[in-house]
Amino acid sequence: MSPIFSSIEAPPGSRLSDVIAEQIERRIVDGCLHPGDALPAERELARQLQVSRPSLREALLKLEARHILEVRRNAGYTVAEVTAPSLTDPLLHLMCGHRKAVGDVLELRQGLETLAATLAAMRAEAGDIERMTEALEATERAHRAGDVSTAADWDARFHLAVAEASHNVALAHVMRGMFSVMRENVRRAREALFAHADAEPVLATQHRDLVAAIRAHDPEAAVRAAETHLRYIREGIDALDS
């Protein structure tokens, strides 16, 4: 894979460390780097940027102070998660005891995921389609193996892959920040739906219809596919309540 960083030179009157920090931030905003991604080792990153290691180290420390980067053991500098768990932890607690909270999360997902579907259909690249397809296939394998937890995890990762294919860094970060809630929401939805024997093939078809619409760069079809999928899930949960 080609380097994502390019050589830089500070304009007159600018600190080199500020220009370095700006390029790293730009790569995050552009979606080239995602939360949890590790930066190249310091020596390699300095080589790609064609800067001195003291200037690079100063830039990295600035980004760490802004909570854009964090240092992980055995991984060096990585892109930080910018959304805190303080929102998602209470939601998880509510979902464990109140079915209405499950429906409320579905309503939130409908807004976020129809937007993600629209933007993904406009902007998705080959790598994005590949990641969606891999998540779908992993979901189906886990279901066939009877591994409900892993199937739910990959199902949620599929929806996250759609959000990342939007190439909207704010949307992708929000979806990443609520991943644990989305995974629990998916688990409970699948639990409700699988009271019906035909649920899994229906879900698989709906997922694949969404990928097909995104691959065809058809935003309207992508929104219809996302809405059909989320409506099916909502109806399954509502049926369990009745």
Rank of each mutant, 00 (worst) to 15 (best):
residue 64 E to S: 07
residue 144 R to S: 12
residue 183 R to A: 09
residue 72 R to L: 13
residue 60 L to R: 00
residue 112 L to V: 12
residue 164 E to H: 12
residue 120 A to E: 01
residue 177 G to R: 06
residue 65 A to H: 09
residue 62 K to I: 10
residue 92 L to C: 06
residue 183 R to C: 08
residue 162 V to Y: 01
residue 103 G to H: 14
residue 156 A to H: 05
residue 149 S to R: 14
residue 172 A to K: 03
residue 152 A to H: 06
residue 160 L to G: 02
residue 155 D to H: 15
residue 119 L to M: 12
residue 179 F to S: 01
residue 91 L to A: 09
residue 117 A to N: 03
residue 102 V to R: 03
residue 121 A to L: 04
residue 73 R to D: 14
residue 62 K to A: 15
residue 82 V to E: 14
residue 66 R to H: 11
residue 78 T to L: 15
residue 48 Q to F: 01
residue 148 V to S: 13
residue 50 Q to G: 14
residue 143 H to F: 09
residue 78 T to S: 12
residue 87 L to Q: 09
residue 46 A to R: 02
residue 165 A to N: 01
residue 146 G to V: 00
residue 156 A to R: 03
residue 84 A to R: 15
residue 85 P to C: 06
residue 67 H to G: 09
residue 51 V to D: 04
residue 166 S to R: 06
residue 168 N to Y: 07
residue 150 T to M: 14
residue 107 E to A: 08
residue 164 E to Y: 11
residue 58 E to Q: 14
residue 142 A to R: 04
residue 167 H to L: 09
residue 56 L to H: 00
residue 174 V to E: 06
residue 55 S to W: 06
residue 61 L to D: 15
residue 81 E to L: 12
residue 164 E to P: 09
residue 186 V to Y: 02
residue 178 M to W: 11
residue 91 L to E: 02
residue 92 L to A: 05
residue 145 A to K: 08
residue 98 H to K: 08
residue 113 E to S: 02
residue 159 H to Y: 07
residue 81 E to A: 10
